[in-house]
Simulated scan of single mutants.
Amino acid sequence: MVKLEHRIAILGGTFDPVHIGHLKLGQSALSILDPDIFFWIPAKRSPLKNKIYGSDFHRWCMLYECIKNEKRYILSDLELIRKEPSYTYLTLIDIKKKYSDSQLYFVMGLDTALSLPKWYKIDDILKICKFAVFKRNVGKDKSIEKLPERIFRNIDFFEVDIPDVSSNLIRKKIALNENLSEFLDPSTIEYIKRFNLYK
């Protein structure tokens, strides 16, 4: 198949820690969108989250170990080197300046998509990129109808089997010394144990 445009996929988040939901989301987007470049961008601090539990360094290292073997994945420090909070709008502006002729796709799950009306400069973001939203049972999820029409029009929905897991759930399991093999890449489990994180 011949691609008619240069495509860049972007997946942002706190990755605190990175888990199988993030990784499955990335793999699905890589396969379906078929981007030329896929940026993973850890946030210094999300404007919509009160606290980051892992340091920038540890979150970066755990994510690197999980994605290092995919040649189209690029781990970016765009938001880590910028003053907090991490605004997606500024990140997209930076990427668009460097790749002016590219179509940008911001990748996310439905839970993140539902927060889009609260994003900083969302109307300007809509002019810069499209949103690629991945979720199970897209057609049956009535929460989608809550999105304003101007945002909904800018979303491409894809139905995939993304595990229902959150970093918050994983941090709780770590504190309780529960088994994490179902939720984390083996490299992440080993890293968390080595540095005694999230205790």
Rank of each mutant, 00 (worst) to 15 (best):
W119R: 06
Y64G: 03
V138I: 15
L116E: 01
S115M: 12
L92M: 04
G54W: 07
L116Y: 01
Y73A: 10
C129S: 13
A43W: 09
H58I: 11
D123S: 08
F106E: 03
Y99K: 00
L48Q: 12
K118Q: 15
D111Q: 03
I95Q: 00
K49G: 08
R72S: 08
K135R: 06
L48W: 07
K96A: 11
F57T: 14
I93A: 11
I67Y: 09
K68F: 04
A113E: 05
L114E: 10
A113W: 03
G109C: 01
K96R: 15
L75Y: 09
K49Y: 07
F134I: 15
I81H: 07
F134N: 04
S55E: 13
F106C: 11
S76T: 05
K51Q: 14
E79I: 07
H58N: 13
F106W: 15
D111W: 04
I125P: 01
L48C: 12
Y99S: 02
A113G: 09
W119G: 02
L80T: 09
S86A: 14
I67L: 08
Y120E: 11
E70R: 06
I52L: 11
L104E: 00
G54K: 03
I95W: 00
L126Y: 05
E79N: 09
D101A: 11
W119P: 00
E84N: 14
P117W: 07
V138D: 02
S86N: 13
G139H: 12
R136W: 10
K98D: 14
T88C: 12
I67N: 07
N137D: 15
M62L: 10
K97W: 04
K127L: 12
P85N: 06
F57N: 10
C66Q: 00
L116S: 02
C129P: 01
Y89F: 15
F134K: 02
G109Q: 03
E65R: 10
P85F: 04
A43M: 12
Y99I: 01
H58C: 10
K127G: 05
F134R: 06
I95H: 01
Q103L: 12
C129E: 01
C66A: 12
D124H: 03
G139N: 14
E65F: 08
I93W: 05
E70P: 01
Y53Q: 06
E70G: 01
D101G: 14
S115K: 06
L63V: 05
R82W: 09
L90Q: 13
P85S: 07
L110W: 05
P47K: 07
I122P: 00
K121Q: 13
C61G: 01
K98E: 14
N69M: 07
A132N: 02
Y87E: 09
I122R: 02
F134L: 14
Y87G: 08
C129Y: 00
K98N: 14
P117G: 05
S102N: 04
L48S: 12
I41H: 01
S100N: 13
T91F: 07
E84S: 15
W60D: 04
I122M: 10
V138Q: 03
I67Q: 08
T112K: 09
H58S: 08
L63C: 10
P42D: 14
Y105A: 11
C61K: 14
R82L: 12
L110K: 00
P117Q: 05
H58E: 15
L75W: 10
Y89E: 11
K130I: 03
S102V: 00
L90I: 06
R136L: 14
V138P: 04
L116W: 01
V138L: 05
Y73L: 08
L104F: 00
Y73T: 01
D123E: 15
L48D: 13
